[in-house]
Amino acid sequence: MSEIELYSYFASSCTFRLRIMLNYKGLEYDMKYVNLKAKENFDENFSKVNSMNQVPSIRLDGITMSQSMVIAEYLEETRQTEPPMLPKDPKTRAIVREIAEIINSGTQPNQNLGLINRIEELGGADAKMAWVEKALFRGLKAAEVLVEKYGGKYAVGDDLTIADAFLYPQLYSAAVRFGLDVEKNCPILHRLYKTLSEHPAVIAASPGQQKDFPGA
C-alpha cells in the first residue's frame, strides 16, 4: 500500500492534473475511484473525505487535502523534482502560476457538468455548446498569449511545469470531450498539446489509461 492515496474520476480534469504531476515525479500512489456520474461523491463516507463532494482529494503525510492547486503546490514543496515544476526564479514562477490559475479558476469551472447540464435544461444542446465554446476559448486564448511569450518546448521554457499539468487536461477536454477545434482557435496551444501528448507522465495519466474508464 502506497503512502499516497488519490481520490480520482477518470474524466475529472482537475484530478488529471495531479495524475500528471505524480507520474512525472515518479511517486507511487493508490487510486480511490469515485464515480461522479453515479454520484458516489455524495456518499456519506466520501463527504467525510471532501466536504465539497468533489475530486480530487489526496491522503498523504498524515493529512487529507482537496483542491488541485493546493495539492499541486504541496507536492512541489514536499517532493520536488530537478528541474522543479515551479521554477526557482520568482518572475518565471509567477508566470507558471498565472497560466495554471487561468485554467483553474478562469476556465475549468465554466465547463463543470452541473453548470452545463443546467444550461442545457434551460436552453437546449445548442445553447450548452455555445456556452462551452465561448467559455473555454476565452480562457485558453488568454493562456496562449502567455505561452507565446514565455513558452519553449513546454508552456514556460523548456521544462515541464505545473502550467503544463493544468493546461493539458483542459486542452484534452476541449478537443476530446467537447470536440472543439483547438488547432484553429489556439494554434500555439495545439502544438503544445501534441508535444505533451507524447510525454510518458501524460500518457499514463490520460483518462483512457485509468481503471475506471468505461470498458477498461
Rank of each mutant, 00 (worst) to 15 (best):
A142Q: 06
V55E: 06
G139N: 06
S105Q: 04
P214F: 09
I188Y: 04
L189G: 01
W131K: 10
Q54H: 14
S68M: 05
P207V: 06
A143V: 01
P84I: 02
I71A: 08
A38W: 10
I119G: 06
E121C: 07
P87Y: 03
C14Q: 04
I203L: 11
R93V: 03
P200K: 09
T64F: 02
P200G: 07
S2V: 09
A201D: 11
K32T: 11
K39R: 14
G215I: 10
S2Y: 08
S57H: 11
Q80Y: 00
T195C: 01
G106M: 00
I20Y: 07
R17W: 06
Q108G: 05
V176H: 11
A165C: 15
P207W: 05
A100Q: 02
P109T: 11
L115D: 09
H199K: 12
S105F: 01
N185Y: 03
K194G: 04
S66H: 12
Q209A: 11
P56L: 14
S13D: 04
K48I: 11
E133L: 06
L86R: 04
N45H: 14
C186E: 00
M31K: 10
P83N: 00
E133T: 11
G106D: 00
M1Q: 15
S8K: 05
R97T: 04
I58D: 13
M69N: 12
K37D: 12
E82H: 03
P56Q: 09
I95D: 00
K128T: 01
S51N: 14
N50I: 09
D89N: 07
A100R: 03
E183R: 14
E3Q: 10
N117W: 04
A165M: 14
E28A: 12
A135V: 01
K194N: 05
D43W: 09
I119Y: 02
D61Y: 04
G152D: 02
V49G: 13
L36D: 13
P87W: 03
A174D: 06
R138K: 12
